[in-house]
Design a protein around this nucleic acid. Sequence first.
RNA 1: GCCGGCAUAGCUCAGCUGGUAGAGCAGCUGAUUCGUAAUCAGCAGGUCGCCGGUUCGAGUCCGGCUGCCGGCUCCA
Length: 653
Amino acid sequence: MIKVRLADGQILEVDKGTSAADVLKEGLSKKQKKRLILARVDGELKDLGFRLQNDCKLEPVFLGDEQAQEVLRHSTAHLMAQAVKELYPEVQVAIGPAIEQGFYYDFNTREPFSPEDIAKIEKKMKELSKKALPIERIDMPIDEAIAFFENKKEPYKVELLEDLKKEGAETVSLYRQGEFVDLCRGPHLPDTGKIQAFKLLSVAGAFWRGDENREMLQRIYGTAFFDKKALKEHLDRLEEAKRRDHRKIGKELELFSIEESIGPGLILWHPKGALVRKIMEDFWRDEHLKRGYSLLFTPHIAKRELWKTSGHLDFYAENMYAPMQIDEVEYQIKPMNCPFHIAIYNSRKRSYRELPLRWCELGTVYRYERTGTLHGLMRVRGFTQDDAHIFCTPGQLDQEIIEILDMTLYMLQVFGFQKYDIYLSTRPDKYVGSDEHWELATNALKRALENKGLAYEIDPGEGVFYGPKIDIKIKDCLDRSWQCSTIQVDFNLPERFDVKYTGEDGQEHAPIMVHRALLGSLERFFGVLIEHYAGAFPIWLSPIQARVITITDRQDEWAKKVLEILRSKGIRADLDLRNEKLGKKIREAQLEKIPYMLVLGDKEVADQSVSPRTRRGETLDAMSVEEFAELLEKQAMQEKMGGVTSPGNSKQE
RNA sequence: GCCGGCAUAGCUCAGCUGGUAGAGCAGCUGAUUCGUAAUCAGCAGGUCGCCGGUUCGAGUCCGGCUGCCGGCUCCA
């Protein structure tokens, strides 16, 4: 007999080996029984059929349980694989896990799946769901399982099992629903009838085990929820994400373009995009100067020899553009700014009294990225990093990191981002630098994060070979994470370039070099910004803050005067004098997501006023130009101070 | 780079099974002088991404290239 503690605190004595379902179903209504899908045993999700072996805490898990969503999606992946096998028996199954937004399953097929195939598969899944096939777990000795899948002609499962065997596994679990049997750790829902709200979303190629030297499989992505409403909301979110796509908005608002005649991954910043960039840059430079940084400018090319010294030709060559010969000497375009900053450091002897040195540059770099990886502004070949290098003594490291974190969070917040994930990447297998240095630097990063009270995850072994790092990833509207901010300690370059300072003791010491970018790159950050605001930038970032709109040509003179006053006050305004109806002018300004429209009719001319309308659709009482300018400036200031989101766009569109 | 899809006017898109291109918006011209999301009329605009092939004939079929899209891999 074992003791089972139930959710209400009651303790039951049951036979060892009793199934969780048997205990849990006791006293449940018929309705509740139907909704019971899993058991939580000592906090861990288990199948209902799980046999209780020890004293434990046992709770029921019902449909809709948030933590069970992953199980639902995993079971849906199995359901999809079952459907595929029933429709196309010759297809081999690979793996099919639940992922953050849904699930996928990889298949090896002779013919790739067409959209019609996907529709068929989805239909089949619905049929199978209706049958409410029980999903049963089968525990099997590993050799038996290998034989089983060999017999079924499922080589991918065999490969997985053989690896499990090498790792010392003796038995494995299989899950069966109808004719379909899959290797799986589980747990799963009790039957396929519990899978109600799902949708297959896309097909794509994916390498077997993520290895580009292995064969390419067909991956079908899908998602599943406990109820139809949640599914619909999710699909609506995906639609909204499409509407916010920075590539679409970038074109509509004439912010930037990428032209085939120029080259892939190379960004043309159009006037409005360039203006936003200028505002971003001004803010960035001001903040850096405020915080004791000095500004640098460095060239775009350097002698090949420099890249040899830096080690880039050893470990980064495939990302660099080919050398060009100038006066018999080979030059190469920079993929990074660091060696230039070091050259400035090394231009003379440095004393400990000068440290820390904080040098920043909006440095444009070029990296060869494979064509398939390019993505709008998010992944490009030429981009401007908001780079900085800090040279400091080991004793100064903690404080420097804290200040960098502080500044990063401040900047992200001003731009309107409160949500991000923080990762601390530690020493990889291959690395340079002493263990002592690694520990010092890793601890400094850790202490800084803790000092700021920031939650972070450790990415073990994911540091760069030259040092540990903190990465901050911003989430975009599709919930894709984009690495923007990065703080990296570098032990490699100072050594390669023999970077030194003279200490208090008169001896030469190696400074610690910290490499950091707050926004990451202006291109990517701009892309994230566009999607974050759906193009309706806060007032302080808007390329056009106000548009002066006349009703008839009788207001032209006053309109020109208004524009002049606004511009003299540093407000970014323009003028629409066209012979069009007011409604059309409003509509166009609205579609351009201009925060304020200043409507001028005969009334406004008579009392020398403006009638503002916000892009939200609110009309304000007429006021003087000066009053409006004050209002605008006040709002822009508030946005920057509090990082508050300014009035969004009106709902119509 | 790999798998699949796509490429028609500045933009968004039609163009059935091959018979040598069409709409809306934008642009230009004119009329209209209008109060908070599209005034009306006219005009102009395309070697159908590029190269080659099949065919009496190719936007349409086939091959190659370039670019883009969804992913994989890789990264700021």
